[in-house]
């Protein structure tokens, strides 16, 4: 016999409502971030398209002179790209060895007591607002560089790069440490039982087993460094130029965007449109880096 729903022994209103409304609510929350992403991408593309109607793609991507505000204007993004990568590479040269070494230390050597002190300190380092790093670069790193290296300017790619590097150390060290700690103890014991030293266990057993996590921490840190804005705005200068010399003042993509957004560039002008083109370039780069990170994580996933 078919029971009416209102009086069914194995059904009631409360359960039905929970069953049907909760997934919808949860979906809406998840959808907000999807919607935001779509909105950002839409804005970037639509504004960039009108910019590229005036300036050809080839001029933008191959031009070696960036002078959007001063006549005669020129929109070659390469100097900004070069500045960005110069800072990022310096940052990675600093953060990669130090971050990895701290991860190895924390996961393989540090006693519980040392960890209790070091980990919170690293977390504080990760929580420092980047503007503080910017002034740290300008008022601490730059003067030191100027005394050490004659000819170094107050604003330089090196000073900003070092500060960005210090900023991303916690990211590399904590993500890598998580990956290394996830390697089962039994693998370590297997190597110890063969007569391996701690360093040998760390470098030959734990690190290879945690490789996917370690490499994706590098890529994420790299993309974080590329997108870093405040430090480079303050400490790297505002001189877009094609240079490989880290002592020079340069300009990165992000600091150019800040410069224009804060200035009195009229809405709708070519310079205004250029920040979207630069922003889109930046977005595409970090987007591909993030895809790369997850591809690496999948490719090298170790089943242990």
């Amino acid at each position: 016999m078919k029971q009416p729903l209102s009086n069914h022994p194995f059904n009631n209103r409360k359960l039905r409502i929970a069953e049907y409304t909760m997934p919808v609510l949860l979906f809406l929350c998840a959808f907000i971030s999807v919607l935001t992403t779509i909105g950002i991408v839409y804005t970037l593309f639509s504004e960039s398209i009108s910019f590229f109607k005036e300036i050809s793609m080839s001029e933008f991507f191959t031009g070696t002179k960036w002078a959007p505000l001063i006549a005669p204007t020129s929109f070659g993004v390469l100097p900004l790209l070069m500045g960005t990568f110069l800072v990022t590479i310096i940052a990675m040269l600093i953060a990669l060895p130090i971050g990895l070494a701290s991860a190895i230390y924390l996961s393989e050597y540090a006693s519980a007591r040392v960890k209790k002190v070091v980990k919170p300190v690293l977390e504080v380092l990760a929580g420092v607002p980047t503007i503080v790093y910017g002034y740290f670069a300008l008022s601490f790193i730059s003067p030191i560089l100027q005394t050490l290296i004659p000819g170094a300017g107050l604003f330089s790619a090196l000073s900003a790069g070092i500060a960005v590097g210090v900023m991303i150390i916690p990211m590399i060290s904590s993500l890598s440490e998580d990956a290394m700690r996830a390697v089962p103890k039994s693998l370590r014991y297997g190597a110890y039982a063969l007569g391996a030293t701690r360093l040998e266990v760390a470098l030959q057993v734990v690190l290879p087993a945690a490789l996917s996590g370690v490499i994706s921490s590098f890529v994420l840190a790299f993309s974080r460094a590329i997108g870093e804005t405040m430090i480079v705005t303050i400490a790297a200068g505002a001189t877009p130029q094609m240079t490989g010399n880290p002592l020079n003042s340069i300009q990165t993509m992000t600091s150019y965007i800040v410069q224009v957004s804060l200035g009195d560039t009229p809405h709708g002008s070519l310079a205004y449109g250029s920040i979207f083109a630069v922003g889109l370039t930046l977005f595409v780069i970090t987007f591909f880096l993030n895809i790369l990170a997850s591809a690496i994580a999948k490719r090298f996933r170790e089943a242990y």
């Binding site: 089962p184 039994s186 693998l187 297997g190 190597a191 110890y192 063969l194 391996a196 087993a209």
Partner: peptide
Amino acid sequence: RTEMLRKRVGMVFQLPNPFPS
């Protein structure tokens, strides 16, 4: 040095623990 001791005294564990290589 325990490394030298363990070279002479090998060990096999309860669960197989081959390296992922």
